[in-house]
């Protein structure tokens, strides 16, 4: 097991440096290594766990921790999480220093302002994607629309909305089954 974890650590450390734009871009590569090449997981495990991570709260890179958990238990989860996040952590930290020191210099302002519409465009695209994938049922669409309205119009707290939505989901299911 420890040998498996060691090679998993190496894979993830290298992969993490190429994971620009987050986890989604590297899913095929992750699948190729973990399922096709090493056979540590089945395709079904891989996709079910990914779906679970999409549904649960938090950044979707926690998928990496779950994969580690499936392969090597709690230690596996710890190892994969550290291997995947540590290099990215230090790169972000260095970049933060650049931001602090050179934030107002002309070249950096050009980068910051040049990237602004791209960032907004990517957020619009991801909102579009998430709204589409969660719209499995008319009730889901109504919940999404109500949330959009309440957040935009009344700036309702997301925590309250999510709790109410969770309770509503469970009780609606109960109501349907009666």
């Amino acid at each position: 097991m420890s040998e498996t974890l060691l090679s998993l650590t190496l894979y993830l450390t290298v992969l993490s440096l190429f994971a620009v734009g987050g986890l989604n871009g590297m899913l095929p590569e992750l699948h190729r290594i973990l399922v096709d090449k090493e056979g540590w997981l089945t395709t079904q495990q891989f996709s079910e766990l990914f779906a679970l991570c999409q549904a649960a709260p938090g950044p979707n890179s926690i998928f990496i921790s779950v994969l580690g958990f499936e392969i090597g238990g709690l230690i596996g989860a710890l190892v994969t999480t550290v291997a995947f996040t540590l290099p990215a952590f230090f790169i972000a930290y260095l970049m933060m220093r650049v931001w602090v020191v050179s934030g107002e210099q002309r070249w950096f302002v050009v980068i910051r302002k040049g990237l602004t519409p791209i960032t907004v465009g990517l957020i619009v695209s991801s909102a579009w994607f998430i709204a589409e994938t969660t719209a499995v049922d008319p009730t889901n669409v109504i919940v999404t629309c109500v949330a959009v309205f309440l957040i935009s119009r009344y700036r309702t707290s997301p925590a309250a909305l999510i709790c109410v939505a969770g309770i509503f989901g469970g009780s609606y299911e109960l109501f349907l089954s009666l």
Partner: peptide, 23 residues
């Protein structure tokens, strides 16, 4: 099924939050 329905509605609510912020 209760857990699934609950998670599904929380995900839809999450989608609504994201759409509102994108706007």
């Amino acid at each position: 099924s209760y857990f699934r329905a609950s998670l599904s509605m929380m995900a839809s609510c999450g989608a609504g939050i994201i759409v509102a912020i994108a706007i």
